[in-house]
Design a protein around this nucleic acid. Structure first.
Length: 496
RNA sequence: GCCCUCAUCGUCUAGGGGACCAGGACGUAGCCCUUUCAAGGCUAAGACCGGGGUUCGAAUCCCCGUGAGGGCACCA
């Protein structure tokens, strides 16, 4: 059997991290089995459709590196891939069900249904549709139609027996048919609901496996009975574990801001992860570790290596929270493995977006040292502030330059010597600076170690308590600017 | 109210009857290294939800509880 899977988001907003995980698993499964990965847009709810959402979702998927073989933009033999463009097809099959007695017209208004549902809920009773229109005689139906009363098409669900959902991850799930509602298949606006559309499309698009979130389990019996009514074989089901809110309370939703245990906001849109400076390969790596594991106690891996090992049976059925801390660590690991030039380019673009212009030379000078310090691309800003903020280092307070191991007088002497040394250093590189400045430091501190002095030097030159290593920082800054910073610091110290 | 799913360290996970006084990772703590911050190395604390079975033997199988989550829309 050829594997054909689809990711079918509804364009109601941006790509949600939970949706991204579903897309990733579908994609991995397709790629690992020589199959096709299809992108289908489920926009049958006109009211909820958001302009630009399709583009945003595709951008996010592309950024993640998840390419699709068929979809709205690339086309394919089973198109169109946007449901609103397939309306006649759903109508045709809704009619077919009507003709064959598997569906009926329902004239109840939305208001009536809402009221009945509310009443049922208040009475703690069954909230699903009471099936009253199912009992209408042909004459009654004809009369209503003649009066132009709008209707929806509902499925005539079986009321007795049991439907079994064969699920690759969970085994057979048995649901009493009494639980299956007479769901709306075709809405009064003529468009299908999810239930009809996904069954018709999955069938005609030759979808072999459905990998979707856990929350769909409850509608699976309905879908299975639809397949049965049509006389079509159904795809293989695999219900993926739900991604929970980091607080553990409820599922992670794209409609509400999510918070962690400490009440802090948490990222949910894929584009937010991108803008926060996370790396796509790291994000994929991260997502693949949730609900599935590589094996061999390995946590860090390129997704390409995971693909051949990825099997649906190995997916952990338990719902999970996203371990955000691990994403920071993982991204840091990925950054450490990146090529310096490539990293420098990425950091430069990020800094630019943050409004900072930094020369490639300066960036390259600090990059090897900076690399191990970054958890994500955006972290560079904090470390490199001294490159564009001259004011930051102007006249640092004397008490911050001096310390127990480096009295003010020694600090002045050391910085003076450093100034002389830097002015003449040839070439101006980390090796030269390290040798010269360390020696100066050792001669000037009370404990004979360069440390305390180098700390003061860092502060004088960068104005920061935390920065890339001083030598690299000086090289990045350039001789002239470094000397100017030292002069400013010296001026702030008592002349003796 | 009804139906469904799930249940291993704080979190993500390995484990699919004996190899488990339960392994890895993040996080946390301590130590080492160290020019700050990181990174790295070493060490430590830390879990099989409860109760019944089945079995010579159960984290692993079954049942019942409990807890958490999902669903019961002219939303997907």
């Amino acid at each position: 059997m050829t594997v054909r899977v689809r990711f079918a988001p509804s364009p109601t907003g941006y790509l949600h991290i939970g949706g991204a995980r579903t897309a990733l698993f579908n994609w991995m499964f397709a790629r690992g089995h020589g199959g096709q990965f299809i992108l289908r847009i489920e926009d049958t709810d006109q009211k909820r459709t958001v302009k630009g959402a399709v583009q945003a979702i595709m951008d996010a998927l592309r950024w993640m590196g998840l390419d699709w073989d068929e979809g709205p933009d690339v086309g394919g033999p089973y198109g169109p891939y946007i449901q609103s463009q397939r309306a006649p097809l759903y109508r045709q099959w809704a009619d077919w069900l009507l003709e064959h007695g598997y569906a009926y017209k329902c004239f109840c208004t939305a208001e009536e249904l809402k009221a009945r549902r509310a009443a049922a809920k208040a009475a703690r009773g069954d909230q699903s549709y009471d099936r009253r229109c199912r009992l209408l005689t042909a004459a009654e139906v004809a009369a209503r139609e003649a009066n132009g009363i709008p209707y929806v098409v509902r499925f005539k669900a079986p009321t007795e027996g049991v439907t079994v959902i064969p699920d690759v991850i969970r085994g057979d799930i048995r649901v009493p048919n009494s639980q299956i509602a007479d769901a709306v298949l075709l809405k009064s606006d003529g468009l299908p609901t999810y239930h009809l559309a996904n069954v018709v499309d999955d069938h005609f698009m030759d979808i072999s496996h459905i990998l979707r979130a856990d929350e769909w389990i409850s509608s699976a019996p309905l879908h299975l009975n639809l397949y049965a009514a049509f006389g079509w074989p159904h795809p293989v089901y695999a219900h993926l574990p739900l991604v929970l809110n980091p607080s553990g309370k409820g599922k992670l939703s794209k409609r509400a801001q999510a918070f962690d245990d400490h009440g802090r906001e948490v990222l949910v849109k894929v584009e937010e992860f991108r803008d926060a400076g996370y790396l796509a390969p790291a994000l994929n790596n991260f997502l693949a570790n949730v609900g599935w594991s590589f094996g061999d106690d390995r946590e860090i891996f390129p997704i390409e290596e995971a693909i051949p090992r990825f099997e649906l049976q190995d997916i952990n059925p338990a719902p999970t929270r996203l371990p955000y801390d691990k994403l920071d660590w993982l991204t840091g690991q990925w950054i450490q493995e990146m090529d310096v030039l490539e990293l420098a380019r990425a950091v430069r673009a990020t800094l630019e977006r943050q409004g900072h212009e930094v020369s490639p030379e300066a960036l390259l000078a600090v990059m090897p040292a900076l690399r191990v310090r970054l958890k994500k691309l955006t972290d560079a800003e904090g470390f490199l502030r001294f490159l564009w903020e001259d004011g930051g280092s102007a006249a640092p307070a004397t008490d911050r330059l001096a310390s127990a191991k480096l009295p003010a007088e020694a600090a002045r002497r050391g910085l003076q010597a450093a100034r002389t040394f830097i002015a003449a250093a040839q070439p101006l590189d980390t090796a030269t600076l390290s040798a010269g400045l360390t020696a100066i430091g050792e001669s000037v501190t009370t404990n004979g170690k360069a440390g305390p002095f180098l700390g003061a030097l860092r502060l004088a030159v960068t104005g920061q308590e935390v920065s890339p290593p001083v030598f690299e920082s000086i090289v990045a800054l350039g001789r002239d600017r470094a000397l100017a910073r030292l002069d400013a610091a010296l001026a702030a110290l008592p002349a003796e």
